[in-house]
Amino acid sequence: MTDEPALAARLRDRDLAAAPAALNLIENRTRAAETAELLRDLSPAALGGEPPGHVVGVTGPPGAGKSSLLSALVRAWRQAGRTVAVLAVDPSSKRSGGSLLGDRARIESDPADPGVIVRSTAAGGRLGGLAPATRAAAQTLSAAFDVVVIETVGVGQSETEVAEVADTVAVIVQPGSGDALQFIKAGIMEVPDVLVVTKADLGDVALRARRDLVSALRSLGARDTPVLAVSSVAPTTGIDELVAALAAHREGLDLPERRAEARRTSALADFVAEHGERGMRALGGRRTALRFLDEHEAGLDVATLVERLEQRAGAAQ
């Protein structure tokens, strides 16, 4: 029943129609071995370089206007001929284990356009966190799509986790909500790669919010972080500038380094989730473990890195 090699080949060939089946596989807990194979087949080591897709994290509090902004962004990317996958991570998860998805994530796109896919998943009760399969999904889809967006809800924690997966993190705030500003000042929130103030149609309020954010960033020494004001309702403004800012950030990155770093952090997190503090002690602590990972080839996939950590911990015990 395994169709993994075929899926990997299709994604490598940028066959976007393979995406839904790949996501079904990745989310399936009983097919973890196949998922690991898929990631290995699509790892930089296997591809001979980083997957080409730009992984963009978009996060912000509920009601900040993320869905409308994403609709406008997707439209702009599509007009520029770029293919887009959106992974929407929904925080709603109740006692029942069930969740309501898509309600907030309805992103307007042409259903006949094969160049866009939107997939929503439940975070599984972790506020601001990613769904367990999101990282694997982003890595997989970045082999086939030009842009992979990870959308999460929240301010303060979510962008940290998104930053471990995304090349570029954009935090979305609406004017009048001082949260982001407070979080940045208090150091609760790390400075994002791009800050976006929505509802620019509100005029002065949006401009003031933008000014406050700029001066807060300046006081933290982050004067290069772009702060953009956009309006996603007609007539839209600032969307092209945002597209350009996201692209500029990526161009300024040492992409292989940032992604290798992210994979190492992820591998260690996965290892700890599996083997706990005891496993970590066997590795000689976090710093030693990261140093150990640094010694490995940069293009290795997460599962392989976890295996190496497990071998090392086993040898130490």
């Binding site: 029942s96 069930g98 309501l100 998805l101 898509g102 309600d103 998943t121 439940a122």
Partner: peptide, 16 residues
């Protein structure tokens, strides 16, 4: 139906 399916433990996609 969407709300009840969630309460029953399903992941529900409802887009209006």
């Amino acid at each position: 139906i969407a709300v009840r399916a969630r309460d029953a433990g399903m992941d529900v996609v409802y887009e209006g």
